[in-house]
Design a protein around this nucleic acid. Structure first.
Length: 423
RNA sequence: GGAGAGAUGCCGGAGUGGUCGAACGGGCCGGUUUCGAAAACCGGUGAACUCUAACGGGUUCCGAGGGUUCGAAUCCCUCUCUCUCCGCCA
């Protein structure tokens, strides 16, 4: 969320930002609402002030005086309660409008409509050439008896899977390695609640707008998280932190649930786009200073790159363009890992900087050394999401005999195994 | 699921209709003292919105939302959360 004052003072910047994100926005409507809000609120406050001061005289007034006083106060009270709902409804409308005002992307963010316009920053690692015909991860998984899509479809519908045998070990090994890696960077591990109330969803800017993507437990008013970013970033909602404790480095491990509504034709095969997966996510809460959060942004990007290098996976980093940025993000880097069966890089990580956007919604603040209160900046990035990462991992490590070589770093998490499929 | 208790500032904890943004204690910040520190003593210490050039003023916030009243932290209703007991259960 942006501050209405900021919007007033930077009208062109806000309009330009929305344009760059390809989002329609009627800012003038909000300015008008805010004008009306101020007007009505001032009127109401003045009435309230009189009501309060006159009320105080009641107990000390003598009987005759009291009659007149109470009569006046009755009228005052009536006018106050008339005005109150007016003020409230204007404020609610304004708030609702402000919730969908996009954050302003940084100048470095390239122009563009969608992910096709993202700009490659660098490539790391060699894309290998195979001297035998390769299989995709689906074929590999089924022939090695570690994945089952068909039965999953019968039991749970589309975009679901069973992991079995070595795939289970691999999944857990990847998560464990990720956690160890990110902890070595000073991040505190968390397993958060997977079900959250509406507030954290709004606070992290998934709602309003993203309702279609979330599973909703109607009886309980709870939502299944699509990422641990939601409960982790919300951890300190409503608090005023001390600058001495910042930045907070958190790593959330959780299952993630996504409805994937509106993606019917897309990525229907294999492990790319699933309703449920596991992820270790890094979340940073830092001081609300752009230079500081930029440093953290590079920091969390680097953490994930290191992990991919440890896993020997070739990848590229892209600077995400305006049209592909979310509502709240000021800048985003995606990491895309090479996926042989897709013959392209596919998104496996996404590192976002929100500046104050989430913090303002979450009321997440800190006190600076002078004692002044500011909104924090929040950032997050994938450490590793699986089983999507199986795609490059299985496909790139396949051997001519159909077995799969397990990367060195994972072996100690898999009982010393070196291959999947070898007796 | 049933019965009960509670939710107050950074923390603990008073306050049951008016003068309460809130006693008292702790913490924290500043000062006195000291070679320095500790202790002691003195002073200060919430947030948001809004008016003002500034000094300063106004309004809101005592879990959330409604209600009663001239007036609500205090009374009533609903919800959320925490705790205790019973039941059920991974």
């Amino acid at each position: 969320m942006l501050d209405i004052k900021f919007i007033r003072e930077n009208l062109d910047m806000v309009k330009e930002g929305a344009r760059k994100k390809r989002i329609d926005l009627d800012v003038m409507r909000l300015i008008e609402l805010d004008d009306r809000r101020k007007e009505k609120r001032t009127e109401w406050e003045q009435l309230r002030a009189r009501q309060k001061s006159e009320s105080k005289r009641v107990p000390k007034a003598d009987p005759e005086e009291k009659v007149g006083l109470l009569k006046e106060l009755n009228e005052l009270s009536a006018r106050v309660s008339e005005l109150e709902p007016e003020v409230k409804s204007i404020e609610e409308e304004l708030k609702a409008g402000l919730l969908v005002v996009p954050n302003v992307p940084l100048d470095v963010v390239p122009e563009g409509k969608d992910d096709a316009d993202n700009v490659e920053i660098r490539r790391v690692g060699e894309v290998p050439a195979f001297d035998f015909p390769i299989k995709d991860h689906i074929e590999l998984g089924e022939s090695l008896d570690i994945l089952d899509f068909q039965r999953a479809a019968r039991v749970s519908g589309s975009r679901t899977y069973y992991l079995k045998n070595e795939a289970v070990l691999l999944e857990l090994a990847l998560m464990h390695l990720s956690l160890d890696h990110i902890m070595s960077k000073g991040f505190s591990p968390y397993i958060p609640p997977y079900l959250v109330k509406r507030d954290p969803m709004v606070g992290t800017a998934y709602f309003p707008g993203g309702e279609e993507q979330a599973y909703h437990m109607e009886r309980d008013g709870l939502y299944l998280i699509g990422t641990s970013e939601v409960p982790i970033t919300s951890l300190h909602a409503g608090e005023i932190l001390s600058h001495k404790d910042l930045p907070y480095y958190y790593a959330g491990f959780s299952a993630c649930f996504r409805r994937e509504a509106g993606t019917y034709g897309k990525d229907t095969k294999g492990l790319y786009r699933m309703h449920q997966f596991h992820k270790v996510e890094q979340v940073v809460i830092c001081q609300g200073i752009p230079e500081v959060s930029q440093k953290e942004h590079d920091h969390i990007l680097n953490n994930s790159e290191e992990l991919l290098q440890m896993l020997e996976l070739p990848y590229r980093v892209v600077e995400v363009c305006g049209g592909d940025l979310g509502l709240g993000q000021v800048r985003k880097y995606d990491i895309e890992s090479w996926m042989p069966s897709r013959k392209s890089y596919g998104e496996t990580h996404s590192a976002s900087n929100f500046h104050e956007y989430q913090a303002r919604r979450l009321n997440l603040r800190y006190r600076d050394p002078e004692g002044k209160v500011h909104f924090a900046h929040t950032l997050n990035n994938t450490v590793l999401a699986s089983p999507r990462i199986f795609i490059p991992l299985l496909e790139l490590n396949q051997q001519e005999d159909g077995t799969i070589r397990i990367p060195e770093v994972l072996r100690k998490y898999m009982g010393g195994r070196e291959f999947i499929g070898k007796k």
